[in-house]
């Protein structure tokens, strides 16, 4: 199956600064793909190249079979965009705003259906200026969905949300894949990709430093951590040979007739993998 989005060797510089140094990834139909990375890693530059806002310097990009650098209006009808900061008309109500954007498309989704999808039924006739930050963001998402796009770009959709609002936004994003949509999500929240993303690419200083499912990222980490307590102090052993190390540890403890208090053997969490990927010194 041809990928919905394919990005190969994409480079982009702003003056001297190389924002992207050969980014590679692909999106499959129907998945939620997470582009993860610290601020300044190149997430927004990447997503804006895919949305057609910016031109790449080099590399190949296909979005829905078209190069976004010379895509037309019919291509725009097939994508939905949520920008990093909310942009809505302050003086229109939720329903009016959605109807205005719906009018731009040949086959829009019914306005009230979208309002249901974003959970703003009670604010249907409220003007945008009266909405909370989280509600505006959901209206923003609604504007991206009203054209019934095949592919949705979400640039940090839940930044600044309280925990309840994030949960609700996650529900909405999950419902998109249930509708068969493909979603590209950038975020710097790990729990967000753990909750939502089928696959992840970790971006660091303009390069993809790891990609795969969340399980693969965590499972692919070479080290295993063994922890136990000795004389009240936590001892942490990081090893790439957990079987041998654990055997030696436990054998020694048995010889001494001791119990290894609080013995734990575990793979690092996604957070630890992420931090080691994004903070390690460049080689």
């Amino acid at each position: 199956m041809t990928p919905v989005v394919s990005v190969h060797g994409v480079t982009k510089s702003y003056g001297e600064f190389e924002a992207l140094k050969g980014v590679e990834f692909e999106l499959r139909a129907g998945e939620v793909f997470g582009l993860l990375g610290p601020n300044g890693a190149g997430k927004t530059t990447t997503i804006e190249i895919l949305e057609g806002y910016r031109r790449r310097d080099g590399g190949e990009v296909q979005v829905l079979g078209v190069d976004p650098a010379d895509a037309g209006l019919d291509w725009r009808a097939r994508i939905g965009v949520v920008l990093q900061s909310s942009a809505v008309y302050e003086n229109l109500t939720v329903a009016e705003q959605l109807a205005q954007f719906a009018g731009y498309y040949e086959r829009p989704r019914p306005v009230d259906e979208v309002i249901g999808l974003i959970g703003l039924e009670e604010k249907r006739d409220a003007r945008a200026r009266r909405l909370s930050g989280g509600q505006r963001r959901r209206l923003d998402l609604g504007l991206a969905l009203v054209g019934d796009p095949e592919l949705i770009f979400l640039d940090e959709p839940t930044t600044g949300f309280d925990p309840g609002a994030r949960r609700r936004a996650w529900e909405t994003i999950r419902s998109l894949s249930a509708l068969g949509k493909t979603t590209l999500l950038t975020t710097h929240y790990l729990d967000e990709v753990e909750q939502l993303a089928d696959r992840v690419a970790v971006l660091r200083e303009g390069r993809v430093v790891a990609s795969g499912t969340v399980q693969e990222l965590v499972g692919g980490a070479p080290t295993t951590e063994i922890r136990y307590r000795r004389n009240g102090e936590v001892v942490v052993v990081e090893t790439e040979e957990p079987t041998r190390v654990l055997h030696e540890l436990t054998a020694a403890a048995i010889r001494r007739g001791e119990e290894l208090d609080g013995l734990e053997v575990r793979k690092p969490s996604l957070e630890e993998v992420y931090l080691s990927l994004t903070q390690a010194e460049p080689e």
Binding site: G52, Y53, R76, A77, L83, S85, A87, V88
Partner: peptide, 14 residues
């Protein structure tokens, strides 16, 4: 500056 024009550019409105 609020990003509305940018957002309109992402739609099929010419």
């Amino acid at each position: 500056e609020s990003g509305i024009l940018k957002r309109v550019r992402a739609t099929p409105l010419p």
